[in-house]
């Protein structure tokens, strides 16, 4: 299915957030996630289903003031 990852369309063939992160190359990465504008904690990723058209944000540390 196609989902939106950090603003770009991506094709995935798994149906939960943890598996999607693994497929997208973030299996071991330290990232924070939000799905359709809602924060999803690490522990909830395996139980968070994905659907076509979902908007996934994958964030990490950045410089800030």
């Amino acid at each position: 299915m196609m989902i939106d990852v950090n603003g770009a369309a991506q094709k995935i063939n798994v149906d939960n957030l943890a598996a999607a992160l693994e497929q997208l190359g973030w299996a071991d990465a330290r990232v924070a996630t939000a799905l359709n504008g809602r924060f999803v904690p690490v522990a909830e990723r395996p139980n968070t289903p994905l659907a076509t058209g979902d908007r996934l944000e994958v964030l990490a540390a950045m410089q800030g003031g």
Binding site: E57, A60, A61
Partner: peptide
């Protein structure tokens, strides 16, 4: 610090 879309430099 801040949080932004991961582009490889976060870690």
């Amino acid at each position: 610090v801040s949080l932004r879309r991961e582009q490889g430099a976060g870690q």
